[in-house]
Design a protein around this nucleic acid. Structure first.
Length: 983
RNA sequence: GCCCAGAUGGCGGAAUUGGUAGACGCGUCAGACUCAAAAUCUGGUAUUGGCAACAAUGUGCAGGUUCGAUUCCUGUUCUGGGCACCA
């Protein structure tokens, strides 16, 4: 009876499905555990071997928890709205709904192959009206709420209206809407004024407080394509498709007021188990800083427009005497007003350059650019005139969109000053070397007026007080984070439940949800930079108004989907409160670091809002987060010998010459030698003038399909069949022999290799279906884990999978032998066998617990190797082994479990516990070092004292040799670790 | 440019709290079984020198702390992820 994984895996996958083995109930006396994978987008290219890495890890943990007696929720579904499907529709004329469905069924087939324990009865899709009804519903809640800074939580907008009725906004103040604020509503008013406002004015004001609000923001606009482009569709200022120019355009946009949650998003990090680096990234993204806004007089004063102040934001008011220039963002409202007549032309030129630059480019640019406005600001303390510049390295959205440049203390400012030859004032004495800026806070101030002699750290407070008393500045907490843009000029997303009437956004009543996404045959952009929905007049005009034609962005559905899994079929609520209370937070969330700031912050914010409004009982969605690394592809190369004759004809087109990697390496420093070698080998060159070939030869590495290569060895016939261009190739083999078109050879051709992203265009994609077909799901699951730590990125090499496959076959042979048949027996296990068992239970259990699945797999290998060595096939040992193995290789474990005579499923077995009794040791083989270098090992009992150990050491022959008659300075003995003799 | 992470044999990796660097697997070499092959089994395999015992070197690079550093600190190089409309 041999290990037939195809039959076994098929059999159990069908049985588990039949028995609904993975369906989980919301009512259980068992403790709950919620394991979630980050929502996948069902892309058209399907899964490659890298994608399931996290799913396998989470599946192992979910199954492990189940064996430990938990009621485990482990759902899966699809983040099905998104740009790629829409682009695919535009390119191929297939409706996104259709292609998305196809992609999902393909995805599902691939997932099913791998034997996951997902409860598919809970599947959700964000593009399903039953799901997005509730996305729209939550949007309405966001729209109908504001953030009350005194209670520090979201409240119904009606409580805000009550405040306005009573006291206007004089106490609560305006909200700051850094991202595209709504200027018309940004005013101070009293209760009486509020009462006098008409509906439009009131709604404009309320809009400035809503958690989901409308404002204006810049987008990448491509006139030629007639659409707004995503950042990654813009390359070097032109569209990726077609290479058309892209400029910034201001559009009305929806936003989420995530900035109000900045502090709570920061505080919440203390209550969750994310990696420190993840917390750091989120903290930096939120970017809370304490500083000051300072007003500088402009001069000539008033400046050409009559504006007399420039307001800058700085975190270092102590450096105010070191200010040598000001920089304002190109979008700053003062730009137009303060530009002098002489500088007009230059400024205009600069602005049009900036307009063509994406924000990404602006931030990544090392090159320094900028232009002088012709206006000066005045230092309030010493009256110095400071030139005001415009530069793209200052972004309009952050702070006041203007900074004071302190070259001696900030590297960016320093480079700017050097580049434009602006004189640098040194206020930190010898801490500044004239070559590099020094951002220290510990220097003693010089050239700093009334601050002279003060330590910078202390001067901050002194300056702040002075600024406040002079009423030219105030303390200010700033956040780098901006409000989140929440609308897209696209089709394939959730429609907004909003109708515009007379410039007022009216929410549709809950009873009208879902607002269905209407069918469109053609997804061409609408007029005036609007999305495709704007083309559908019949849908657009509604209830005497005009529907919002933008749709929601990709992250809308994924911001709350973890709640829907708890109660996926509820038609009355987004999630029943009892269900969300029972399942509570996600206990384990697995996904990539690429979501570190986007998805995670958005879903954390939504959770906080739902908590504030008392729809759920916790304000952090994910209790523990584990990041999985990426699996990279391992590309394979052949090397083409290229040359041209004087007339420019490349004679290689018909018969390319492909050189093996070792030959290329051999001639690495000797191109001419290689050309000579090739010419001497290949007969097609005989008629050519060799010197011409030498003069023009080059080697080109070409990606070839990894499936044509076994390890590094090329399948020549396979390559000839793969593409016609290789059909008549000459191959220069490792040993220097030549294989002509139509010939075969016993020599090998070794390819080059490189680690790259797994991608179609590198021909290095490996499909899990192929792996499962060849080795089975159990082998694939274990191998994927065996590759290395989950969190780390690593390349995929199909070759190594043999080892894991051999392991499973070896395990099988402990139960059944090809020749002898059944070998397992019910004999009593010996002390030594029990020791192996319990050592492994401890090792594998601990490894699984700390997500060290790669060492877990190695633990299994050691376990099975040890049992094989002592020919132990006792049921008493093998049965617990199978339970340990279930999370990793469920199919083979279930099969053997039943062959051992069990009639219930192993999925619900009880996870074994390690018995310490079998693990106690009495002595240890200590490494003994001389000066930190291990020289010998000595077996010593664990209860030995320092004195006893020293005696043993001094009596040891090898140690005596090293002591050379002398006495050691010191003997360091760390119990159960090591011994070090210091000479 | 800014933020985060990583770098260990020919390859993937191990070393959980500063304590025997290279577990486990791949590859490779040698051997057993076989008419042969596959499968399987046994043994070797960081580098250098040596028949060996053993010695020297060795965790990206340059320093530092320590009896002892892959692990901690400073600096640096390269690679990967993110930078707000890919998901």
């Amino acid at each position: 009876m041999e290990y037939n994984f195809r039959d076994i895996e098929k059999k159990w996958q069908e049985k588990w499905k039949e028995q609904k083995a993975y369906e989980v109930s919301n009512n259980s006396v068992r403790p709950k555990y919620y394991v979630l994978d980050m929502f996948p987008y069902p892309s058209g290219t399907g899964l490659h071997v890298g994608h399931p890495l996290g799913y396998i890890a989470s599946d192992i943990f979910a199954r492990y928890k189940r064996l430990q007696g938990f009621n485990v929720l482990h759902p899966m579904g699809y983040d099905a709205f998104g740009l790629p499907a829409e682009q695919y529709a535009i390119d191929h004329g297939i409706h996104p709904a259709v292609s998305t469905d196809q992609n999902i069924s393909n995805f599902r087939k691939q997932l099913d192959n791998i034997g996951f324990s997902f409860d598919w009865s809970r599947e959700v899709r964000t593009s399903d009206p039953k799901f997005y009804k509730w996305t729209q519903w939550i949007f309405l809640k966001l729209f109908e709420s504001w953030y009350n800074r005194s209670t520090k939580k979201a409240e119904s907008i009606s409580t805000l209206e009550a405040i306005f009725e009573k006291e206007g906004n004089l106490k609560i103040g305006r909200t700051q809407s850094a991202a595209g604020g709504n200027e018309s509503g940004s005013i101070d008013f009293s209760a009486d004024q509020w009462k006098s406002f008409d509906e439009k004015q009131r709604q404009d004001i309320l809009m400035n407080y809503r958690l989901a609000f409308c404002g204006y923001g810049e987008v990448n606009w491509c006139e030629a394509l007639g659409t707004v482009l995503a950042n990654d569709e813009v390359i070097n200022g032109v569209s990726e498709r077609g290479g058309y120019p892209v400029v910034k355009k201001k559009l009305r946009q929806w936003y989420l007021r995530i900035t109000e949650y900045a502090d709570r998003l920061l505080e919440g990090l203390d209550t969750v188990e994310f990696s420190d680096s993840m917390k750091e990234m989120q903290t930096n993204w939120i970017g809370k800083s304490y500083g000051a806004e300072i007003d500088f007089h402009l001069t000539p004063n008033p400046s050409p427009s009559g504006d007399s102040f420039l307001r800058v934001y700085t975190t270092r008011p102590d450096t105010i005497f070191g200010v040598d220039f000001m920089v304002i963002a190109p979008e700053h409202e003062l730009v137009e007003k303060i530009t002098s007549a002489e500088q007009q032309k230059e400024v205009e030129g600069y602005l049009s350059y900036v307009k063509s630059r994406s924000e990404r480019e602006r931030m990544a640019e090392k090159k320094i650019s900028g232009v002088f406005t012709g206006t000066y600001a005045e230092n309030p303390f010493d009256g110095r005139k400071i030139p005001v510049w415009i530069s793209e390295y200052v972004l309009a959205g952050y702070g006041t969109g203007a900074i004071m440049g302190v070259p001696c203390g900030d590297e960016r400012d320093h480079k700017f000053a050097r580049h434009f030859k602006i004189p640098i004032t040194n206020i930190i004495g010898k801490h500044y070397d004239g070559v590099e800026a020094n951002p220290t806070k510990d220097a003693i101030l010089e050239n700093s007026g009334f601050l002279n002699g003060m330590i910078m750290r202390d001067a901050i407070e002194v300056v702040l007080q002075k600024l406040e008393s002079m009423k030219i500045g105030q303390r200010k907490v700033n956040y780098k984070m901006r409000d989140a843009a929440f609308s897209r000029q696209r089709y394939w997303g959730e429609p907004f439940p909003i109708v515009w009437k007379d410039g007022i956004a009216e929410p549709l009543p809950e009873s009208e949800l879902p607002v269905l996404l209407p069918h469109l045959d053609e997804l061409k952009p609408g007029p005036d930079a609007e999305g495709p929905l704007a083309n559908l007049d019949s849908w657009k005009h509604y209830k005497g108004g005009i529907r919002e034609v933008n749709t929601m962005p990709g992250y809308a559905g994924s911001s709350w989907y973890f709640l829907r899994y708890m109660d996926p079929h509820n038609e009355n609520e987004f999630c029943d409160r009892q269900a969300s209370d029972y399942w509570n937070q996600v206990d384990l969330y697995i996904g990539g670091t690429e979501h570190a700031v986007g998805h995670l912050l958005y879903s954390r914010m939504w959770t906080k809002v739902l908590f504030d409004l008392d729809f759920i009982g916790y304000d952090e969605p994910y209790r523990k987060l584990v990041n999985q690394g990426m699996i990279q592809g391992s590309s394979r190369f052949v090397y083409r010998f290229d040359y041209k004759l004087n007339d420019g004809v490349n004679l290689n087109a018909e018969n390319p010459v492909l050189i093996s990697h070792p030959i290329v390496e051999k001639f690495k420093e000797n191109e001419k030698g290689l050309a000579e070698f090739i010419v001497s080998k290949v007969d097609q060159f005989n008629s050519q003038d060799a010197s011409k070939i030498f003069a023009s030869s080059a080697i080109t590495g070409l990606h070839i399909d990894v499936n044509l290569v076994s390890g590094l060895e090329l399948d020549l016939a396979g390559l000839r069949n793969w593409r016609t261009e290789y059909e008549n190739a000459y191959f220069i083999m490792d040993d220097g022999s030549v294989v002509k078109p139509g010939e075969s050879s016993t020599s090998t051709y070794t390819c080059g290799a490189e680690v790259e992203k797994m991608s179609k265009r590198y021909y290095n994609v490996v499909n899990p279906d192929d792996i499962v077909m060849k080795y089975g799901a159990d082998t694939y699951r274990m191998y994927e884990m065996f590759l290395g730590p989950v969190e780390q990125s690593k390349p995929w090499e199909t070759q190594g999978i043999e080892g894991v496959h051999r392991f499973i076959k070896k395990l099988w042979r402990l139960f059944y032998d090809d020749m002898k048949g059944k070998v397992w027996n019910e004999e009593k296990a010996s002390e030594a066998e029990l020791k192996i068992l319990h050592k492994s239970i401890k090792k594998i259990g601990e490894d699984t617990e700390r997500f060290s699945f790669n060492t877990g797999v190695s633990g299994f290998m050691i376990f099975v190797n040890e049992l094989s060595d002592i020919k132990c096939s006792k049921k008493e040992i093998l049965e617990p082994l199978l339970i340990l193995l279930t999370p990793y290789a469920p199919h083979v474990a279930e099969e053997l479990w039943h062959l051992l005579g069990n009639s219930t499923s192993i999925l619900d077995a009880t996870y074994p516990k390690a018995n310490e009794k079998f693990l106690v040791e009495t002595s240890k083989n200590y490494p003994v070092s001389i000066n930190g270098k291990v020289r010998t090992q000595i077996d010593i009992t664990l209860d030995a004292s320092q004195q006893e150990v020293e005696q043993i050491i001094l009596d040891n022959e090898i140690i005596k040799k090293w002591l050379n008659g002398g006495a050691p300075k010191k003997i360091i003995y760390v119990k159960n670790k090591m011994i070090n003799v210091v000479l």
